[in-house]
C-alpha cells in the first residue's frame, strides 16, 4: 500500500499539470488560512461588516488596502482571502457529499441489481438531465435567498448521478470477481461485502471524481452568487463580483473586478489539473466521463 503511494507520488511529481495544480492549490489554501489574520489586525478588515472609517467609496490599491476598497469602504483584499475560505468550504463539502451519495447509490445499484438498480439508475437519468445551475436558480428564487449550506446541499443532490453511474459499472465488474464470491460463501452479509470488499476498490475512482466535482460546485456557487441568488451573508468571490457588477463599478474598478474572477478561474483550474494528473496516474482507463463537466 505504502509502496504504491510512493510510486504514485513519484509519477505525480513528473507530471507538469499536476505540479502546477498542486502549487496553485497550496497558494489558495494559504489564502484561506490567512483569511483569519486581517480582522485581528483591525476591525475594519472584517470582510463583511468592517469599513474604513475614512473611506466611503471605492478606492484603488494603497498601502492600507492592498487591493483597494469596495463601495462602502470594505477592504477588498480581506474579502478575497475570506472568499478563498468559502470557495474551499463550498467546493469540498459539496463534492464530498455528492461523491458520498454517488458512491453509495452506485454501489447499491450495482450490487443489488434488478429492480433496485433500474429504479436508482432511472432516478440518476432524471437528475442528470437537469441543468444544476438553473435548478438551484429556480429553487433559490422560489424559496427565498438560500443559506450557503442549503446551496451546498442542493448542488450535492444534483451532482451525484455521474459518479454513481461509473461506480455502478465498477461494482458490476467487481461483483464477478472471485473474492466477492468467496466472501459470500463465507457468509458475509451484504452490508459487509459492500463496505469491506467493494468500497476500498471503488474509493480511488470516487476520490478522482471528487476533484472534478469540487470544480463544478465552486463554479455553480459563484455563478449563482454572481446572478444575485447567493447567500448575501457570505463573502464569496461570486458575491464580490455581484457587488462590483450591481453597484456599477464593473468597468471602472479593475482592482475590484479582476481578482475575484481570476481566483475563481484559477482555483477551479487547480482542482481540475490535480484531477487530470491523478487520473493519468491512477488508471488511464478511468477517465470516460470525468472530463465532461
Amino acid at each position: 500500500m505504502m509502496g504504491r503511494f510512493v510510486g504514485a507520488w513519484r509519477l505525480f511529481r513528473e507530471n507538469l499539470i499536476g505540479r502546477i495544480g498542486l502549487t496553485l492549490l497550496i497558494v489558495f489554501a494559504l489564502m484561506a488560512v490567512c483569511s483569519f489574520i486581517p480582522p485581528l489586525i483591525d476591525p475594519m478588515y472584517q470582510p463583511m461588516h468592517g469599513v474604513d472609517p475614512e473611506i466611503s467609496h471605492s478606492t484603488g490599491p494603497s498601502m492600507k488596502h492592498w487591493l483597494g476598497t469596495d463601495f462602502i469602504g470594505r477592504d477588498i483584499f480581506s474579502q478575497l482571502l475570506a472568499g478563498a475560505r468559502i470557495a474551499f468550504m463550498v467546493g469540498i463539502s459539496a463534492a464530498f457529499m455528492s461523491i458520498f451519495l454517488g458512491t453509495l447509490i452506485g454501489m447499491i445499484a450495482g450490487y443489488a441489481g434488478k429492480t433496485v438498480d433500474m429504479a436508482l439508475m432511472r432516478l440518476a437519468d432524471m437528475i442528470m438531465v437537469m441543468p444544476t445551475l438553473l435548478v438551484v436558480l429556480i429553487l433559490s428564487s422560489l424559496f427565498g435567498q438560500l443559506h450557503i449550506w442549503t446551496i451546498v446541499l442542493i448542488i450535492a443532490l444534483f451532482r451525484w448521478p455521474g459518479v454513481s453511474r461509473v461506480i455502478r459499472a465498477q461494482t458490476l465488474s467487481l461483483k464477478q470477481r472471485p473474492f466477492i464470491e468467496a466472501a459470500k460463501v463465507a457468509g458475509a452479509s451484504h452490508v459487509r461485502i459492500i463496505f469491506r470488499h467493494i468500497t476500498p476498490n471503488v474509493l480511488p475512482l470516487a476520490l478522482l471524481y471528487m476533484t472534478f466535482r469540487v470544480t463544478s460546485a465552486i463554479i455553480i456557487e459563484a455563478a449563482l452568487a454572481f446572478l444575485g441568488f447567493g447567500d448575501p451573508g457570505t463573502v464569496s468571490w461570486g458575491m464580490m463580483l455581484q457587488w462590483v457588477w450591481k453597484t456599477g463599478h464593473m468597468f471602472q474598478a479593475p482592482y475590484w473586478l479582476l481578482p475575484p474572477g481570476i481566483c475563481i478561474s484559477l482555483l477551479t483550474l487547480s482542482f481540475y489539473m490535480l484531477g487530470r494528473a491523478m487520473e493519468e496516474i491512477l488508471d488511464p482507463r478511468l477517465r470516460q466521463e470525468g472530463a465532461s463537466d
Binding site: 470544480t215 463554479i219 459563484a222 455563478a223 454572481f226 446572478l227 463580483l241 473586478l257 475575484p260 474572477g261 475563481i264 478561474s265 477551479t268 483550474l269 481540475y272
Partner: peptide, 8 residues
C-alpha cells in the same frame, strides 16, 4: 474549460 464564464 475552467475560466469563470460570466466574468469572461
Amino acid at each position: 474549460h475552467t475560466v469563470f464564464l460570466p466574468w469572461l
